[in-house]
Design a binder for these strands. Structure first.
Lengths: 87, 87
DNA sequence: GCTCCTTGTAAACGTTCGTATACATTGGAG
DNA sequence: CTCCAATGTATACGAACGTTTACAAGGAGC
């Protein structure tokens, strides 16, 4: 699934944890984070540090991938070209 | 590409910025972050906040996706089952 | 050699992080 | 009804965040 906000991440983490049959306490222990922190992440309510997120996702057996959004890339690229032209 | 560490993210961001022909100053301005912060992210040297990362990637026209790693998921699931059994 | 651009990094600052601990609430099992 | 597990959230604390500002270094162009 596409992650465009902390809330997207929250839903993915909670759903995945449920499907693995883990409690917050158990997952937090395995991921090496605190349970209140995990609770906040699952509520989409914290500006979590990226490396803690990576560790959490790895514990859940989930992989983060980066794709280039074609239409958006084209748009950004065009903007860059236009900007260069105006310079 | 797969992101498993801040260094993976660093390489992806720097490469993408170069391919768009943008300076750090220009990208930071567009993404609404500071240039020293961006420099650190591109060096893989900061525990950046997840929502700043999302904003940066969006500005670069890049999309974050989450996949379930099948083999790893199976491993985690088995571990959970074994743990339940031992309880 | 000079100027300019880009990038890396330091210092100071205010803000907010994550943690440990504690407590309240809710839902489910017995 | 009682008890327990799970979850949400508050507090206090030490640590580190991101920003602004400044400076250094390297390279390109003249």
């Amino acid at each position: 699934m596409v992650i465009t906000s902390p809330r997207d991440l929250a839903a993915a983490v909670r759903g995945r944890r449920a499907s693995l049959g883990l409690s917050q306490a158990e997952l937090a222990l395995r991921a090496g984070v605190s349970r209140p922190w995990l609770s906040k992440v699952e509520a989409g309510k914290t500006k979590a540090e990226f490396d803690l997120i990576i560790r959490l996702l790895d514990t859940l057996g989930m992989t983060l991938r980066l794709d280039v959004a074609d239409s958006k890339a084209a748009s950004v690229n065009l903007d860059a070209i236009l900007k260069d032209y105006e310079s």
